[in-house]
Design a protein around this nucleic acid. Sequence first.
DNA 1: CTGAAAGCGCTTACAG
DNA 2: CTGAAAGCGCTTACAG
Lengths: 331, 331
Amino acid sequence: MATIVEVASLAGVSTSTVSHVLNETRHVEPETRAKVVAAMKSVGYRRDALARSLRRSRTDSIGLVISDAGEPAFADMVHGVEEAAAQRGISLLLANSAEDPARERAAIEALLDRRVDGLILAMAAGSGAGLLARIREEKKPLVLLDRLADLDVDQVGVDNQSAVTALVEHLTDKGHERIMLVAGDLRVSSLRERYDGFRLAMRERGLDTPSDLLCEGTSTAAATFEQVGELLRTSAQQPTAILACSTLLGAGVLKAVQQAGLLIPDSMAFATFDGFAYSDLFEPQITTVRQPAFQIGEEAVGLLVRRLEDPSGATQIHRLKSSIEFRQSTE
Amino acid sequence: MATIVEVASLAGVSTSTVSHVLNETRHVEPETRAKVVAAMKSVGYRRDALARSLRRSRTDSIGLVISDAGEPAFADMVHGVEEAAAQRGISLLLANSAEDPARERAAIEALLDRRVDGLILAMAAGSGAGLLARIREEKKPLVLLDRLADLDVDQVGVDNQSAVTALVEHLTDKGHERIMLVAGDLRVSSLRERYDGFRLAMRERGLDTPSDLLCEGTSTAAATFEQVGELLRTSAQQPTAILACSTLLGAGVLKAVQQAGLLIPDSMAFATFDGFAYSDLFEPQITTVRQPAFQIGEEAVGLLVRRLEDPSGATQIHRLKSSIEFRQSTE
DNA sequence: CTGAAAGCGCTTACAG
DNA sequence: CTGAAAGCGCTTACAG
């Protein structure tokens, strides 16, 4: 690998000059510049971003730690982050915590070691408050993604409250009063928000949800299948509708409903958050809350970049609007 | 950020010693070590991976450039790469070319600037041979992912030939002779292999596929929908089965089939490569070739690491086996 | 068993 | 308009 020194000596100039033509950071006489450019060409010069970063103490890279690379919504967010970063000439370091706080911690430490300019984080379900304190301690710009926290930190997510309210309104309008909520792991803030929003919206309509219509704590499709199946078999008050709070939970519910021999929508209405890819091609067609996952990712980069430019600006918390696709499953 | 110098002076030792306790790279007296460790704790020392990389001329990072972050199979491969890299303490730099050779080139240049130890690449459809030559020129270890090339480079993909042969065998056994192939962009090597494999397998069974049963060149679901719809409307010899070579193509086909008022499998058999997530929950249930995408990703990291350890070893080309899920759509 | 010092490849005040 | 030189934070022969 050729270095700036070789280029300089070949061109008969100082390394300062080479650096300045490289960065267009001070005027260089056209002839001098031409010699430098020619020298760079001839040795196949490529600037070492590491050395540059070391000297400038910024890396033009950011770290993204997501909690569950399996969920399609997260895949779209990663996609959005990548796109927005690339547009700005920022490199993306990706890590997946797989909902494991220990892996999450390790990933973040590795990212900090690499001196990323900032972090975007979708926290693992069980991760403690210590983690964020640690990042703050390092004074590293941080944006929370999808899973928000009640803290003074930049964040981007979706408006879970209003989405779940709209869904409850839709279902109650259709005459449903016994709605089962399949909520998932309530340590995940987005799921907690959907859960709380659901109960609030129900109460506002004078409806109370008995505990055997609240299925929470599962975090795999298989476990959800089991638990929902059990509830459908044993519950004194059978639901007329089921609402799942993520793709994975929805998959478990669908399987349980099918096994119970229930038909959607005739014997059971069903709606889910996030939903399935290309689902309009298949039966049953399912009412789905779509979060703008790609844009959430883009927005996270936007916030992070803003923060890098203005470290002391006011904290921003963005909640993008979900859209609801009303389909046959709740007809 | 505390540096090794501060730690050294606080502990009353040289920076050499600090470095050696950090890396456990030579014996240090227990007492000395204790002082160093205490000093590191007290200043909250964190090693600068950049400086370390610069000095050692290796970064313990790899770059992954994929061609289409939208396809679920690629999402799984990324997932596998991330997992395998993390296990080895390697950081992952992710970029998406979105099938655009210019973006691909830019991404690779950025990665090379960052001195990644190696590259994993799923080439964009239209990317020229120059790209690989360029990487070879830089003597950067490279593994080709999913989209293989007829070159002396480490590669991991799937055995498209045998998968498509099995599918053709399955369909012809069911009595299908007029099978439409929806092949996609034939500049993509995996799609080319499926196309060639299909024609070969058909010929071996004494079947010739007329050109109006060969749909190729589309690379979006929308374009595929249009083109397949057109063929279904105009073709002299209507197919009794359709085979799609990717998820995206399959989505276009399904829509066209539905619009044509054809029922799967009664009036049209259908099978696809890659397939849809959770598709066993929905109707119609579709015969699908599943590639082990996650393992392909893991394997790519394995090959790359092997190459880093043994730069002059023999080139390895791994083709993992796909599995075929036979479902109702081809009954 | 430990330290002094060179050097990785850049950027950037400072000087002329 | 350009150059000499310090310094970013490490690792690692070399020496004792």
